[in-house]
Write a protein that binds this DNA or RNA. Structure first.
Lengths: 232, 232
DNA sequence: ACGCAAACATGAAAAATTGTAGGTTCGGAT
DNA sequence: ATCCGAACCTACAATTTTTCATGTTTGCGT
């Protein structure tokens, strides 16, 4: 269960508020704020559940989240992985009332759940605000589409190279980072077996392209990874 | 070159106009209309070009269009295939100024190119209109995401079954249809080799699940296809 | 009508990927 | 402290998929 702790983020300093107040009056934001709820999610906890009614948007202040789709057989795919601060769940808002996929915390996450209805009301009254929110909430598609494309015409080592580059450049923003998820999750992101992930990473390790001890991954030869990504 | 023929669609009867005028005044729509251009695209012609400036939205009155992404090596993936009437290119509008992928006519298409700037202006002035347009233009994502998921955890025969079902249910709306594209294009949609498409379709043909003569595909055993899709 | 290029088709070999089976390590629950 | 399950790792067999080689058919431009 998400833990409703003492506020860590002061609503008056929140970046979401700052963004919003570029387009709507503070009094109007207050209406949105009042329907919102600040929560702390532990690693592994579900923030939005696939199949549930999409009654909330999520402003992720801090943390890392995976977009997880699970099929009838219980197999998962990770559509993409993102870090805060970012607005999530907008896709569900515009698509339909049902969440198409789950949002799951990969690390401890600070997030605000925002009532969709309250938000929609403000969007209707302010086109500029609507456009901005839409731009914010479609960010995730870009990375999902690039993963899609990587999947579509690269083989496993190319896809894994892409994932490492993506994590380094977009998520952890460093060439050395502690991954906050399992090999199985990497396999769900790369859409292959977890054995294949292990084999591929071990090979890259042996060849000195990366070093991967425990949970710490370091890119040793960025250019080589780029090359694998290109020809993979 | 697209052929600028004598108007087939009377702007006063256009479904896009009807939709728009639920939220904006006819005079305001007139501003959008004046910047628009009605065109006829022949099979194979590019409506929006990947990499070009995203200066237009496209309202597709009639026809079938593929979302095509081409990588540096010249290999293509088809993200999804859609039929008119539908609003296209919205993704590009909100993403960035550059088209992320091409839209290519698979059949003769009647379409209006709408100036992005004129449209954005109206969206800013009217939140409800903006929300409606977002909803319209994100439709394509749903099918692209489902194709993504199919790709991610099914093997080729499952993916091909999915594609046949998708074409029958969403595109041609019939269990018997004349496909307007090649086996190679199916392979770009299914993300596999074209030989694999041929082998798989031949097998389904032999087993009586479908019949596929020339360009005419007929689903003989819908339930069997569903089953292949499920376990695929 | 002819020729050429693209699309279609098929089989066999090669490569990539998954599944299976073995065992080790790690961390949380009792 | 110990037990148990999950994650990790490796090798090998089984399967899927691609690649290659070859030949036929189709459709379009001249």
């Amino acid at each position: 269960m998400p833990n409703s702790r003492h506020s860590r983020y002061d609503c008056n300093e929140c970046t979401f508020r700052t963004l919003s107040c570029r387009h709507i009056a503070p009094e109007e934001f207050e209406l949105i704020r009042r329907t919102s709820q600040q929560l702390l999610f532990k690693k592994g906890e579900t923030i939005l559940k696939q199949g549930a009614k999409a009654s909330n948007l999520v402003y992720l202040h801090k943390g890392i989240v995976k977009f997880n789709f699970e099929n009838e057989a219980g197999k998962s795919v990770i559509l993409t992985i993102v870090t805060g601060p970012i607005l999530l769940g907008g896709a569900n808002l515009f698509f339909k009332e049902i969440n198409l996929f789950s949002l799951i915390a990969l690390e401890e996450c600070e997030a605000c759940l925002i009532d969709s209805k309250a938000m929609k009301k403000s969007l209707m009254n302010n086109g500029k605000y609507a456009i901005m929110m839409f731009e914010e909430s479609t960010e995730m598609f870009k990375s999902a589409i690039f993963n899609f494309i990587s999947l579509a015409h690269k083989q496993v080592h190319g896809r894994i190279a892409d994932i490492i580059l993506y994590l380094a450049d977009q998520v952890y923003k460093s060439h050395k980072f502690t991954i906050s998820f399992t090999k199985k999750e990497i396999s769900e992101f790369a859409a292959c077996s977890h054995e294949n992930v292990i084999t591929t990473l071990s090979k890259m390790n042996r060849e000195g392209i990366i070093s991967f001890e425990g949970k710490v991954l370091e890119i040793k030869d960025y250019d080589k990874l780029l090359e694998i990504s290109k020809h993979g």
